[in-house]
Amino acid sequence: MSTMYAALLRGINVGGHRRVPMAEFRALLGELGHEDVATHLQSGNAAFRSASGDEDALRAELERAIEGRFGFPVDCVVRPGGYLADVVAACPFPAAELEAKQLHVTYFDKPVDTARFAPLDAEAFRPEEFRLGDRALYLYAPDGLGRSKLAAALGRPALNRGLVATSRNWNTVVKLVEMTRD
């Protein structure tokens, strides 16, 4: 039995740096033995089918292969399609009423708890808000991510030490669910 997964690459193809062309990324996934490979946008989103049931092993395999092919390390988060659908279903914000640029999900490589973000005075950032989910953080930023002071605060290295974290806007979150549906 095989499963559809999404691979979310962190920090590639930004400002012409750390270039990972999507055609080469798709080819690499195929060379690793994965099937039904597709990518979305240029920011490192891929869907693929694998017989592996171990997302951590898939992540490690993919990170090694990317570094070997492109010559630099890239952190990845790999999640099965069912998990992605659960993230959408559990959204604590009214996604249907918001513009996609106002809602983002940060995917973490492992569970996080509220204590990690306790030093942050969330009230100081209103009307922006965040909520934690299962290895995910939901961010409501009414003026978009680029203007979000809360996003900048959440991205501080002290809050993310020891984590791999990568964010996607709501349109991409929903598209990844569609791409990984069995």
Rank of each mutant, 00 (worst) to 15 (best):
T3L: 14
Q42W: 06
Y83E: 12
M1K: 12
E97C: 10
A95K: 05
A7C: 04
A151G: 02
V177M: 14
P92H: 10
Y83G: 10
A7G: 04
L163I: 03
A95P: 11
E24A: 14
V88Q: 10
Y138F: 11
I12W: 08
K101S: 12
R49W: 00
A47Q: 09
P157A: 11
A100I: 07
A165Q: 10
L29Q: 00
T106F: 05
D182W: 15
F25P: 01
T39L: 04
A115R: 15
A152D: 06
F48A: 00
H104C: 01
E97A: 15
L137M: 15
D109L: 08
R156P: 01
N160R: 13
Y138N: 02
V88H: 13
Y138M: 01
R181E: 14
V37C: 04
P94C: 12
G144P: 08
E63H: 04
G146R: 13
A85Q: 14
L32T: 01
F117W: 09
R116K: 09
Y140R: 03
L163G: 09
A38L: 12
A165Y: 04
D75L: 07
A136L: 05
A153Q: 13
A60M: 01
L8M: 14
G82P: 11
D75F: 09
D182N: 15
F108A: 07
E99N: 15
A141C: 13
E61R: 14
K101W: 11
T172H: 09
K110H: 13
L139D: 02
E55N: 09
L132F: 07
H40F: 14
S148V: 03
D86H: 14
G68C: 04
V87A: 09
P142A: 15
A23H: 05
S50I: 00
F130H: 05
E61F: 02
P73H: 02
A27K: 10
E55T: 01
V112C: 05
